[in-house]
């Protein structure tokens, strides 16, 4: 068995993209990092036999949210070159700890054997209908909830982005 199969490669890609998202120098880079993370996760979700959720993750998280962030960033003022230089010096001090934390924690998890205590006796698998019909047949209340929250979001857009007499 080779270590580098497609699943492990995906995990590594996702991990790198996530770290890049946090450490990325500009907001735009962070947003792109988030989109890449999201795309990689959607492939992982696909590999976990959940195609419908993968499509949603890809189209909504990688697509729509990135669009929201990019438009938000483009509406705000970019920093001047000097500010970027100053900020990046300052940033390194704050962000350098993330890889350190991750490495220490990874080592700790690899050596401390806490895993046997964490195994849950999972219930036996039941024969499952498809997600489409399940969402409608068993979780109609959640669909109703989605409708309500989208409505609330629509009010929010009207409130936050709508035309407004300036006071």
């Amino acid at each position: 068995m080779t270590i580098i199969n497609i699943d492990n490669a995906l995990l590594i890609v996702t991990a790198i993209a996530a770290i890049w998202t946090v450490m990325g120098r500009s907001l735009l880079k962070a947003t792109i990092g988030l989109a890449v993370t999201s795309a990689a996760i959607s492939v992982i979700i696909f590999r976990l036999e959940s195609p419908l959720a993968a499509v949603f993750e890809l189209s909504v998280c990688a697509g729509l949210i990135t669009a929201v962030f990019v438009s938000a960033i483009s509406l705000t003022k970019p920093l001047t070159h000097k500010e970027i230089l100053y900020a990046s010096k300052d940033r390194m001090k704050r962000y350098i700890y993330l890889p350190v934390i991750l490495l220490v924690l990874g080592a700790a998890l690899a050596f401390v054997k806490i895993w046997p205590g964490l195994v849950i006796a999972a219930p036996a698998a039941a024969s499952q209908p498809e997600a489409r019909s399940l969402l409608w047949d068993f979780r109609r209340l959640d669909i109703l909830g989605q409708v309500i929250i989208l409505l609330a979001g629509a009010f929010g857009i009207v409130l936050l982005f709508g035309e407004k007499k300036n006071k």
Partner: peptide, 13 residues
């Protein structure tokens, strides 16, 4: 969770 988020989003706004 779904209804908590509905309440929360309305409260933010």
């Amino acid at each position: 969770y779904v209804f908590m988020e509905i309440t929360a989003v309305s409260s933010f706004l």
